[in-house]
């Protein structure tokens, strides 16, 4: 399987990348980071850009920083953790800081693909490609992440829900915009559980959960699913059922409501699993994700 022909440019900086994107605006340019979503798409004909802009050597887009911008190294004063777009899954797993402050990302990354792919695939690429069944979109929604992008009109931040089209709309990422970093607020509680598709490694269904616990009571809950729809989605019925309840009593009844907000007729249905089955699986994996979140907190 050969990719189609294209021109390749290696960008030396973000500005250089934006320049090349602008210059080739009519050539359907695509950004190449780790390549682990884009190259398979090129091989199987799902993408055929005339130009690839490789941002893989821009060191300012790599790394995990607490309280500062990855790129400019300046304090953003929010206590959030910034994850550079080119940070690999392996980098995420090596970060003790992330495991303490955003364990939902660590937990989702641990079961993502395999060792070689984790060495090469990037967080920014994962969220931009947002494959149905990719693990990080659910984790990013649950983590309440914001996506920082640069484009022709400068810098802006996009809420993970808008970026991922979690309400079913198009992604808010504009043409010729590139992701620079992902920021997550501190949250010591989080877990992820998935039914892995045995061949593709993607989630048939995956659920990410982040809980805010105030003396045994759930003060806030963010629960999101991947694999069940074409985009990641918040499971609001589960969230509503958790808030205000005691942690040791709420999980089972809340998880049972996971499928409530999704019509099986809207769910992804293919040779591997019907929409009905995917919705059916949600409760099981919601319960597991919530239990993992509790374990992390304990």
């Amino acid at each position: 399987m050969f990719p189609p022909h294209f021109d390749y440019h290696r960008a030396s900086s973000i500005d250089d990348a934006l320049d090349v994107l602008e210059r080739h605006r009519d050539d359907d340019p695509r950004i190449l980071a780790g390549g682990h979503s884009l190259l398979p798409d090129l091989k199987n004909g799902r993408a055929s850009p005339d130009v690839l802009v490789d941002i893989g050597e821009i060191d300012g887009l790599r790394g995990i920083e607490s309280g500062v911008d990855v790129e400019s190294d300046t304090d953003h004063g929010t206590g959030q953790t910034a994850i550079g777009a080119l940070t690999t899954y392996a980098d995420v797993l090596e970060s003790d800081h992330l495991e303490r402050h955003a364990p939902v990302l660590t937990d989702a990354t641990r079961v993502l693909a395999d060792l070689q792919i984790r060495n090469r695939g990037t967080v920014g690429g994962n969220l931009t490609a947002a494959e149905p069944g990719a693990d990080l979109p659910a984790a990013a929604l649950a983590a309440d992440a914001t996506i920082h992008v640069r484009g022709p009109d400068g810098e802006r931040t996009i809420d993970a829900g808008e970026f991922l089209g979690a309400d079913g709309s198009e992604s808010a990422l504009g043409e010729r915009e590139l992701v620079t970093e992902i920021r997550v607020p501190p949250s010591p509680t989080g877990g992820y559980a998935k039914k892995t598709h045995p061949a593709s490694g993607y989630a048939m269904v995956g659920v990410a959960a982040v809980l805010e616990i105030d003396t045994e009571t759930i003060a806030d809950a963010r629960v999101a699913a991947t694999g069940v729809l074409e985009h990641a989605v918040r499971l609001t019925a589960v969230e509503d059922a958790l808030v205000g309840e005691r942690v040791d009593e709420a999980i089972e009844t809340a998880a049972e409501r996971a499928g409530e907000t999704i019509d099986p007729a809207d769910a992804r249905s293919d040779d591997h699993a019907s929409g009905e089955f995917r919705v059916h699986l949600l409760s099981t994996y919601a319960a597991q994700a919530l239990e993992r979140a509790m374990e992390v907190d304990a």
């Binding site: 190259l39 091989k43 090469r120």
Partner: peptide, 26 residues
């Protein structure tokens, strides 16, 4: 050739990667 089987695994700057999913120019 689709980053599943790992038969093409090589070390790239010290990390095991699937060389079917890396462009030579990268």
């Amino acid at each position: 050739e689709s980053s599943k089987c790992g038969a093409c695994t090589v070390e790239l700057d010290g990390d095991a990667v699937k060389s079917c999913t890396v462009l030579a120019v990268q």
